[in-house]
Nucleic acid binder design. Structure first.
Lengths: 193, 193
DNA sequence: TGCTGGATAGAGCGATCGTTCTAGAGCTGG
DNA sequence: CCAGCTCTAGAACGATCGCTCTATCCAGCA
């Protein structure tokens, strides 16, 4: 069943999530996933008869939940919603630097590569992730007393901005875009009370 | 030399720019570029002895300038900087919908896929594009009377937000993320005067 | 007319892609 | 003790990848 602590299936999902996050969907090979997960090709296809796409969907869902947990924790660390979002940006910036600017958003790269097939499972998983993160932020804003419509729209822009700032930070290899985006988002939120 | 109006080299660059924009760098093949450009493999390697990476760099630089022109035009269409940025977002949203949600930012996909090689020419071209766009926005803000430091930082967040909102709009197949991001950016800019 | 060099054309190279397939290892219930 | 299962292991297939190579075409010039 499982070798040491984690099952083979879990190792495959985690490895795939990291690789897809760093090099995208097309850029990541099934054999590379197997090697990184200390599994064999047979194991991968045993657990994921759907092939590469099925592995990627599981990987994206894993990255989704992982990021959602970080997001919730950062949002709860501060009472003021603006400060909480800024803390979020700081956290992302630190993690990004620590990874050597490679571990960005777990879904962006895969999402952009698979825009061709509109109804693809990967597309659906990415869209679901974004929607979930937006709801998490909207919930925080609602609890802070914002109007429902404002909270939802603002949450969307918060996610979009963090997303874009993360990409910019990766490309320029600097924490600055994320940090200033965090400050600006905090300032924007402050105008709603 | 040239068949009808454009030279073979130009057709290759334009085709490569579109393909890279839509499916990323790894997802686009040299042979596909040649076919799309109505050129042959021999012509591609004749004009770009550097191979796939050289073609991609030229394509990204082309997309960079193309987007910069659109950006400048949109920014000049309105006097108020906030309204100008909002007009920008509206323009991007319309173009995105018209393309069937496929023609997003010309550099994001390629940038994310090639983060591995830090010093790659592709990376450099993408970073230069982002920097140039930021300068364009900063220039507009400066002309509107903002302080230099504020203008530059704000311009960075504007580009990041537009970038992120464009991705979100593509994934969710909706203009809404771009439109509300434009409104929020306008509101943010308004707090600086 | 023959030469030259830029441009076009595509066959073919080794490598790698995703996938399929068969064979065996390790455990469990009867 | 073995039948029957999940899981592991990797060889092999056809397709496609980026790239190299040779052959041909054709305008401009002597």
């Amino acid at each position: 069943m499982q070798t040491s602590a984690t099952s083979t299936r879990d190792r495959i999902v985690v490895a795939a999530a990291r690789l897809v996050q760093r090099q995208g969907y097309v850029g990541t090979g099934i054999k590379q996933i197997a090697k990184e997960a200390d599994a064999t090709l047979g194991s991968v296809y045993h657990f994921f008869p759907g092939g590469k796409e099925a592995v990627a969907v599981a990987a994206i869902q894993y990255g989704d939940e992982e990021f959602a947990a970080i997001l919730r924790e950062a949002l709860d660390s501060e009472d003021d919603p603006g400060a909480a979002i800024e803390a979020c940006a700081r956290l992302l910036a630190g993690a990004l630097r620590a990874s050597g600017w490679t571990d960005g958003c777990p879904v962006t790269a895969a999402a952009l590569e698979t825009l061709g097939d509109a109804g693809s499972q990967i597309q659906r998983a990415c869209a679901a992730a974004l929607r979930g993160w937006q709801d998490t932020v909207a919930d925080k804003l609602l609890r802070s007393g914002l109007a429902a419509a404002d909270a939802h729209e603002l949450a969307g822009t918060v996610i979009s901005t963090l997303e874009g700032a993360e990409v910019t930070a990766q490309v320029t290899r600097s924490e600055a875009p994320l940090l200033t985006a965090g400050r600006h988002l905090s300032r924007l939120v402050a105008t709603y009370r």
